[in-house]
Design a protein around this nucleic acid. Structure first.
Lengths: 331, 331
DNA sequence: GCTGGTACCGATACCGGTATCGGTACCAGC
DNA sequence: GCTGGTACCGATACCGGTATCGGTACCAGC
């Protein structure tokens, strides 16, 4: 799209009868400009409907107002909440978040990050600690603060904010064992791309093995983890193994689906069968019968990540690792 | 953030032993450059880790690669799906979506749109047909294609894509009446800011009045519409009016909450009480007992809006109004 | 009357690219 | 040998701002 002829600072300056430079200073409120001229310039800008050009400002001043954020999915409420936290933390700072979606695909992630870097952002927030070698190189050479979020199990390029998913899986296993569950199965989807879910699963499985119990069954599928899929997989698993007393899911959506199956099948939850998910979604709080879950501080993670970028900007020396402890909720 | 000294096209050109202009042409694949030089430039760029500068490119070429998108909320899955559709439709076009969130606040919306315009986008996609006078002025003067999405009930600044919410409410009322429901109540949240929900409500109410039935009760609250709120309001409403045989909600989340209450209270749904929501979320499909809903083509709306921007860009003359007919689902 | 400081302002260069125009080398064709 | 076309390339100006430097006017102080 060719940008239409629009009002520039030069037009404003001409109308106000001052130089471009004075108009620039007047509108930004920097430097010495007489009150009379500030008023003239402001009026001219308003009358002309002048809208500044960030492209020119950023290029000229060598300052960036953008913070690039890369998440694997937008339609997952978890990442939407992270974004929301980032946007809130950035409010009033003069910085603006730009979002990119990787669709859980490493090549797409590379492209998205490269594209973000071409806007010369003030910082980059990316999801997870696992990136392709090319992407890592890009991030290391970026010369801007990079915050990796959601995960702590691994090495960060620069800074990271999140929780340990291995630990989250382990803790849930302990809680379920403490509740007296013995025949525990697992249902998960998309572990091949969702490395954090895979880490939870490993932490969970290892905890059971350490206790000498082991996993009583598992159902792992590729593809998205939706309520409907959770329902179907639960039905399948229970058809094979009706004696289970607990199912751990890779997330709350699957667990909610599991609960809906149990409601239809008249299975007592959590009496006969305990279900457990992950995330602590609103959905789970509202379910008629409780599903255990691990609450994750999604907004807080977004806020903390944004703060790190702002702090670096302001010359402060923010922490390189912000760890949250997920909280188990077992109604 | 001061942008660190980074590799520029001049560096690449020097390393490749050609002029900036030839390097520029080589990397963009435009104009006449000898194969040998293309290879030299590409290699130099790769070796130096050159990442182009969109700021400079856009400013210089007077071409924009950004499409600004303003939605009221990110944590509402409905808008997340719209964004997802937009992002997909833009893929491969060289355009990139930038998202802004208005939080349902007209002043914030103005600021967000103004901010977007300062990036000189190729087009703007904004939610809804109701904007403040200042915002409308901004949009009209924008000199870029503006697509208003989600709603058709009103006048568009430029183009619009969506459904008629008044009609959606009306249609649902007809369907519920056709099912034999007689004592129909309404539960809604945040109608003061969600003008589309308010339009559905009016359409619904008017349809009932036309049939000489009228609304048997209503519970309208400010604030967010979550599953938990839907559950609480349903409990309250039914405590006052236990004889209702139908409740229409402003959306699916509230309706799901209503269903969860009914499950706890052992109310037969939809036998004794029919619940109806709006949106057609995955959630509803998976609920143990059906809740009626109106499916909205969210991804399609996003795709159609993005296509309009791209079409205008390409000199085509896209439709100014794309209407979808929502489909009622009544399990 | 001269000096020095303050308030205010503008000329100029520059950010990192691309559009545009024109130039050179080379070869085919007569 | 001259002409005209093609392939290829670079100089220059420019996009719309801001950083930087220096200049002028004016007044206080001695």
């Amino acid at each position: 799209m060719t940008i239409k002829q629009s009002i520039t600072l030069a037009d404003v300056a001409t109308k106000a009868g001052v130089s471009k430079m004075t108009a620039s200073r007047a509108l930004r409120g920097t430097g010495d400009v007489s009150k009379a001229n500030v008023e003239l310039v402001r009026r001219a800008a308003r009358d002309l409907g002048y809208v500044g050009n960030h492209l020119a400002t950023s290029l000229s001043s060598q300052r960036s107002v953008l913070v690039g954020v890369v998440v694997p999915s937008l339609t997952n409420i978890v990442f939407a909440e992270v974004l929301s936290g980032i946007a809130n933390a950035l409010e009033g700072s003069g910085k603006q978040a730009v979002f990119g979606v990787s669709d859980y695909d490493p090549d797409t992630e590379y492209d998205v990050i490269r594209n973000m870097l071409s806007w010369r952002p003030a910082g980059l927030i990316v999801t997870g600690l696992e990136q392709s070698a090319d992407t890592l190189k890009l991030l290391r050479n970026a010369e801007v603060p990079v915050v990796q979020i959601m995960d702590l199990d691994g090495d960060a390029v620069d800074a990271c904010v999140g929780i340990s998913h291995a630990e989250a899986g382990h803790t849930m296993a302990s809680a379920l064992l403490a509740e007296g569950r013995k025949r525990i199965a697992y249902i998960g989807c998309g572990l091949e791309r969702d490395t954090r879910a895979a880490k939870r699963f490993r932490g969970f499985k290892n905890a059971l093995i350490d206790e000498g119990i082991g996993l009583a069954g598992e159902r792992i599928e590729t593809g998205p983890s939706t309520i409907a899929v959770g329902r179907a997989l639960t039905a399948q698993l229970l058809a094979d193994q009706p004696d289970l007393d607990c199912i751990y899911y890779s997330n709350d959506d699957l667990a909610a689906g599991g609960l809906f199956h149990c409601l239809s099948a008249n299975i007592d939850v959590p009496g006969t069968l305990r279900l457990a998910g992950f995330n602590g979604l609103d959905l789970v709080d509202s379910l008629p019968k409780g599903v255990a879950t691990t609450r994750t501080p999604r907004r807080e993670i977004g806020i903390a990540a944004a703060r790190i970028i702002l702090d670096v900007e302001n010359g402060a020396n923010p922490p390189r690792r912000v760890a949250y402890t997920p909280e188990i909720h077992m109604p």
